[in-house]
Simulated assay, not measured.
Amino acid sequence: MAGPGPAWSSRLAIQLVRGLPGTRELHRRTVRALGLRKMNQTVFRENTPTIRGMINQVKRLLSVETVEMHEARVKAEAEFRASRPPLVINHSPPTSS
């Protein structure tokens, strides 16, 4: 008796993390069909067998995470940047007493 499968996310965040020069033409067309045009660009696609097959074909060029994981990572990065105190540099010359 098999229970319900894992709860897959309905959407994926796909990011192009490697360049396309030197790759096969078929891989370039696949990346283009996913909607990626620039390095570090992120697109959101439905989690379908077709999209997963395209991702599997060019997996060495991509970073894939669920939308929930992507949003949590972006939020954590924003909080890290916001929590840092401003850098204060004092350029006054030393006083001699």
Score class of each variant (00 low, 15 high):
residue 59 K to D: 13
residue 96 S to N: 05
residue 48 T to G: 08
residue 71 E to P: 03
residue 1 M to H: 00
residue 29 R to H: 12
residue 7 A to M: 08
residue 71 E to G: 03
residue 41 Q to S: 05
residue 5 G to C: 08
residue 24 R to H: 15
residue 30 T to A: 12
residue 94 P to A: 04
residue 64 V to A: 09
residue 76 A to H: 12
residue 94 P to T: 02
residue 29 R to K: 11
residue 82 A to V: 01
residue 51 I to H: 06
residue 35 G to C: 06
residue 18 R to V: 00
residue 66 T to A: 09
residue 30 T to D: 11
residue 18 R to G: 01
residue 39 M to L: 09
residue 51 I to M: 06
residue 80 F to G: 02
residue 46 E to A: 13
residue 5 G to T: 09
residue 66 T to C: 09
residue 35 G to Q: 03
residue 48 T to N: 07
residue 6 P to Q: 07
residue 26 L to T: 11
residue 41 Q to C: 09
residue 28 R to V: 13
residue 37 R to V: 00
residue 85 P to W: 05
residue 14 I to P: 06
residue 2 A to G: 06
residue 51 I to S: 00
residue 88 V to K: 07
residue 75 K to P: 04
residue 5 G to K: 12
residue 84 R to H: 13
residue 28 R to G: 13
residue 74 V to S: 01
residue 9 S to M: 02
residue 66 T to L: 13
residue 73 R to C: 03
residue 14 I to G: 02
residue 46 E to Q: 04
residue 34 L to K: 09
residue 66 T to S: 14
residue 83 S to N: 08
residue 43 V to A: 03
residue 87 L to Y: 02
residue 33 A to P: 01
residue 60 R to E: 13
residue 95 T to M: 10
residue 39 M to G: 04
residue 51 I to K: 01
residue 76 A to I: 04
residue 25 E to N: 01
residue 17 V to I: 12
residue 97 S to G: 04
residue 69 M to F: 14
residue 60 R to D: 15
residue 64 V to W: 10
residue 70 H to Y: 15
residue 77 E to R: 12
residue 89 I to H: 07
residue 20 L to W: 00
residue 20 L to C: 00
residue 71 E to M: 11
residue 50 T to F: 06
residue 54 M to Y: 04
residue 43 V to H: 02
residue 16 L to R: 01
residue 95 T to V: 05
residue 63 S to V: 11
residue 52 R to E: 08
residue 58 V to F: 08
residue 60 R to I: 12
residue 94 P to S: 05
residue 52 R to K: 02
residue 2 A to R: 10
residue 62 L to Y: 05
residue 29 R to M: 12
residue 53 G to M: 00
residue 12 L to D: 13
residue 13 A to W: 07
residue 64 V to C: 03
residue 79 E to K: 15
residue 93 P to S: 10
residue 97 S to V: 09
residue 28 R to N: 14
residue 65 E to C: 15
residue 18 R to S: 00
residue 33 A to L: 05
residue 39 M to I: 03
residue 11 R to F: 14
residue 58 V to N: 13
